[in-house]
Design a protein around this nucleic acid. Structure first.
Lengths: 129, 129
DNA sequence: TACAAGTTTGAAACGATTACAAAGTTAAAA
DNA sequence: TTTTAACTTTGTAATCGTTTCAAACTTGTA
């Protein structure tokens, strides 16, 4: 559960935040939400911790949004959809057990796979936003 | 071929650059390379043009790299691999005709799909970089 | 209790991208 | 042609997510 990472108060709070909220938050969202209960929290700590968690494979760093990185505490294989209107990111099942293994040419090690969809979500489509 | 876009000198140069170079360049790479032959080219024009081409589905905007957007003039379905050491992005075949159609729940319109791998490329693995 | 290693913090720097207004270009009407 | 309006390019300045860095703080261990 702690992935060999020393569990400081801040790190635990950030990891718990990601386990609880499956909203694919950005650094800033996490920072602002946690600030309510941890008034001394620094944005840098959030950056550092997410980088640490990511490098220990405890969280995913989603690059679906070119504007900023989103984080995801759910590590089981699934895809993501981002609505280009409201920006929301939602989880999608990943049917096919994707081409992970037959190691592609020129590639020695595959460490991460992301399957990203984008378009318009139901809600935005109705509000033709 | 021109996707309903008025073909200014700059736009044609940028589109041709992407058709010729399958290196998934960033805005800055395109800007610098074209500057050699178009000394008055502005970085803003490159941004504007790529946004225009992208919105007309003439090019892909790859979000595989959280640092900056890369562009790809090849529109046939294929996946990408980015080496975390050298940063190079290479094309991979996309075997399985991916889950595009059975429209996922909560999604009204899928406009783009990206399948992104990352890890270490052969070359970097040898130079254990 | 003291020290060293590790962690957090906040300010400053960085760099990709966007906003904006002025100058330039193009196309079509008169 | 000439005029005019619409479109395009340009360069500067602003924005904002992220990184850098050093000082202050905390923790575990000697």
């Amino acid at each position: 559960m702690n992935h060999g990472i020393r569990p400081s108060v801040q790190r635990v709070a950030i990891m718990e935040y990601l386990m609880k909220h499956h909203t694919h938050p950005t650094v800033d969202t996490i920072y602002h939400d946690l600030l309510a209960t941890m008034p001394t929290l620094s944005r840098t700590t959030v950056y550092n911790t997410l980088e640490l968690l990511h490098s220990h494979n405890a969280v995913q760093a989603l690059t679906i949004d070119s504007r900023n990185v989103h984080y995801d505490g759910m590590m089981s294989p699934h895809a993501h959809f981002m609505c280009r209107c409201c920006g929301r990111i939602i989880d999608l099942p990943m049917h096919s057990d994707l081409p992970a293994n037959p190691l592609p040419q020129h590639v020695s090690r595959v460490e991460q796979i992301q399957l990203n969809y984008s378009g318009v979500c139901d809600e935005c489509n109705e509000n033709n936003c």
